[in-house]
Design a protein around this nucleic acid. Sequence first.
DNA 1: CACTTGACCTGTCCGC
DNA 2: TGCGGACAGGTCAAGT
Length: 302
Amino acid sequence: MPELPEVETVRRGLHRLIIGKTIVSITHDTPKSFPNAPDDVRLFLVGSKVVDVSRRAKVLLIDLSTEYTLVIHLKMTGQLVYRGERTFGAGHPNDSLVGELPDRSTRVVLSFADGSKLFFNDQRKFGWIRLLPTVEVPNIDFMKRVGPEPLSDLFTTEVFKQRIARRKNTTIKAAILDQTVLAGIGNIYADESLFDARIHPETRVKDVADRQLDALHHAIKEVLALSIAQGGSTDRNYVDAEGKRGSYLTFAKVFRRTGKACLVCGSEIEKIRVAGRGTHVCPVCQPRPVDIDQKSEQGTVK
DNA sequence: CACTTGACCTGTCCGC
DNA sequence: TGCGGACAGGTCAAGT
């Protein structure tokens, strides 16, 4: 669920809320969500001050004054929720999904010198937090392999075509979900971008026309930018750094709209399975490629 | 190397 | 009502 727009929304919130704060204590469920050794956590974290909060792909980076960095991946159900003395928690705006904290999904709690706290909640325990020397962060495998940031000016249509060409025999959906092709796309924005570009998700990359790749490149940027402006998508778990939902899904044209009318042509939105994921498609706006192979054919039987 | 599938988890929903 | 199973979806390891 947290894809690029959600992680970016959390980043912006944390950047505003925790810069300059000093960590005074931590509780953590090492090694599940916080794989560092407990002694290292105490040694390198307590007493340090937050100096920056940044993001690469779906990974959050909290730089500390000790020249260590908290590297955080929320995976599917991770949340980073800040609670200060002046933050109204449960029940304040009625758009909050998060009640009193900690709750039973809380895995890590950072306490700051002013009494405020940062809670890492993760129902399904796929997410993680690692503490690394800041200089080591660019050297971890994920950072070396991950593709360009889609909202960067460096992510041109030429770069997109060049990188996706490595995946010419897979489906276009699997290709744009591949973080080494480009960073930050997940299931929601894959479906939305492919709809906007009028490409069927099962089309093999080699069968996608050049002008369709141009349209897809444009759609990816538009969809991600709109979602960031809306504070991301709250499907079930996602909330921002203050516990609030995102509102992008009210703009979604196919995602979670199975059986509803296509906003462009009125046809019924279908749900199929592509690249192992639930996939939403308008059968008229996104026509199936004619020369689709048998294996893909099986995946569409309802 | 390219590509696909299963594992990691827990909560929720659906059918019996 | 309870219970089993499918499903949710980001990433990596292991498989073809």
